[in-house]
Design a binder for these strands. Structure first.
Lengths: 105, 105
DNA sequence: GGACTATTTGGCGATTTTGCCAAACTGGGG
DNA sequence: CCCCAGTTTGGCAAAATCGCCAAATAGTCC
């Protein structure tokens, strides 16, 4: 209820919301392996360049990735690798849900 | 690009999206400590009961919490504690962003 | 400077999310 | 059965998100 902790949760939510999109998760997963230019990511995601660029700016604003211009191209890197450890837990959730659904049958 | 992995990312995104809201993060944090009835959570979150109930159903549908009715009240419990380990990393991101902003000044 | 490539930004309609109110539903007690 | 507290559901308006196109910007090469 205090403004203090409310802001804290809002800040966390902003970071998590930045991850909460299939294309952005795919991008993060790809950047975990190595840095990539926007052109690579556009190809991988399979959407319009402008769309991918906007996804990247969302990730950058959240502090999850950083970019570096080299010539004409802009390369993006994962900034906080620990983010990826989280995926294991998300998979746990999914497995559990799958098991429940199976049990219902 | 293959449908296969695209679905995988979509599934992950659904789970993460369920977390991506300040009130829902607050709820998860509270449930980490102990189970709570909807009435408790309504008080803690400070929103309409119906709003909190909807947040809870989002968390339940994502597989993050489970509920149990005891008499008139419904108690919610955290289902996947590992979710909470993630918060440490999110805090890392926030600290890093804060440091960057300070550096700019 | 002009042409070309890589990327970002502006803007739009379409879809989704959010939070409240009102109404429905559920279980316990008189 | 009626009433009541606790919870869920339906519905609506406001706000946010999404993905594309078109236009602007940045850097390289001639």
């Amino acid at each position: 209820m205090p403004t203090r902790s409310r802001n804290r949760y809002a800040a966390r939510a902003r970071v998590i919301k930045a991850m909460a999109h299939p294309s952005r998760l795919l991008i993060l997963d790809e950047l975990k392996k190595r840095e990539r230019c926007v052109c690579d990511l556009t190809e991988i995601v399979g959407a319009d360049t402008s769309t991918v660029s906007k996804h990247l700016s969302i990730l950058r604003n959240a502090g999850l990735v950083e970019d570096e211009r080299r010539g004409v191209m802009v390369f993006y890197r994962l900034r906080v690798p620990c983010i990826m450890d989280f995926f294991g837990c998300v998979e746990n959730v999914l497995r559990r849900v799958a098991k429940d659904n199976a049990a219902v049958l």
